[in-house]
């Protein structure tokens, strides 16, 4: 479990991985976006606005996957006191918050021509907005704890409890009647999106995910470098 606890060993992998993930992610994104804007047909009802799907769905996925990762980091922080867990939690939050915000923004831009409204307080939209606010709270809490030199336990508890919102977002369209449509793609493999329209989506999903991972690694490296710098300054001050 603590195999990569040593920051030096982690950095040995993280340094080359950052560039690779970023490169692969941008290539996939370029392919997916060109496919989604040029080569796919419009939808029979929505027309061209269906193309927002290729950026809205990955944003929603990463907004939620980001918090799931924070929750996983929180568990390994609370239970195993993994030395990199708090670093990972702090690094994941800005990327997750950005994608949650992009999910809300693109959804709003899609909703205006499709539903006839920018915003409605239905179950799905509201729970996603709450996720965005949870990210802001987590960022404030985690950075305050870091400044105080804490271990990040308060942030970890917040990250774990906040994960309750994830099943609420996911099942909101099933539990309550919402304006937002039900899910189109299920884990069981079914899809109510025609293959001609669907194919760029996996490309942008993987692309955004790789960029997300690259951003998280960059912020982890920044955090570790800051810790190193602070330790060195303390040491030279003591000498």
């Amino acid at each position: 479990m603590h195999g990569y606890a040593n920051p030096a060993r982690f950095l040995k992998i993280a340094r080359p991985a950052t560039g690779w993930l970023l490169g692969i992610g941008l290539v996939l994104l370029l392919a997916g976006v060109i496919g989604g804007l040029v080569f796919t047909p419009p939808d029979y009802l929505q027309g061209e606005t269906v193309r927002i799907l290729y950026i809205h769905v990955p944003s929603a996925w990463l907004g939620m996957a980001g918090w799931a990762s924070i929750a996983a980091a929180s568990i390994s922080q609370i239970v195993w006191r993994h030395p990199l867990a708090a670093v990972a939690g702090r690094a994941l939050a800005p990327a997750g918050a950005t994608f949650a915000a992009l999910c809300l923004a693109t959804g709003s831009i899609w909703g205006r021509p499709t539903w006839g409204t920018w915003w409605e307080w239905d179950g799905r939209l509201t729970s996603m907005l709450i996720l965005f606010f949870l990210y802001l709270g987590y960022i404030a809490l985690a950075s305050a704890e870091r400044e105080r030199g804490g271990e990040g336990r308060m942030a970890a508890i917040f990250g774990l409890v906040g994960a309750i919102n994830l099943p609420i977002i996911h099942y909101s369209v099933l539990w309550w009647r919402t304006l937002h449509q039900g899910q189109s793609i299920s884990v069981a493999g079914g899809s109510t999106i025609a293959p001609e329209i669907l194919w760029p989506l996996p490309l942008t999903m993987l692309g955004f995910t790789a960029v997300f991972a690259a951003v998280s690694l960059m912020l982890m490296r920044a955090d570790l470098a800051r810790t190193k710098l602070e330790a060195r300054l303390r040491r030279s001050a003591a000498e």
Partner: peptide
């Protein structure tokens, strides 16, 4: 609308 959404992202 499509261009606005892609620009925001």
């Amino acid at each position: 609308f499509v261009i606005a959404a892609y620009a925001v992202v």
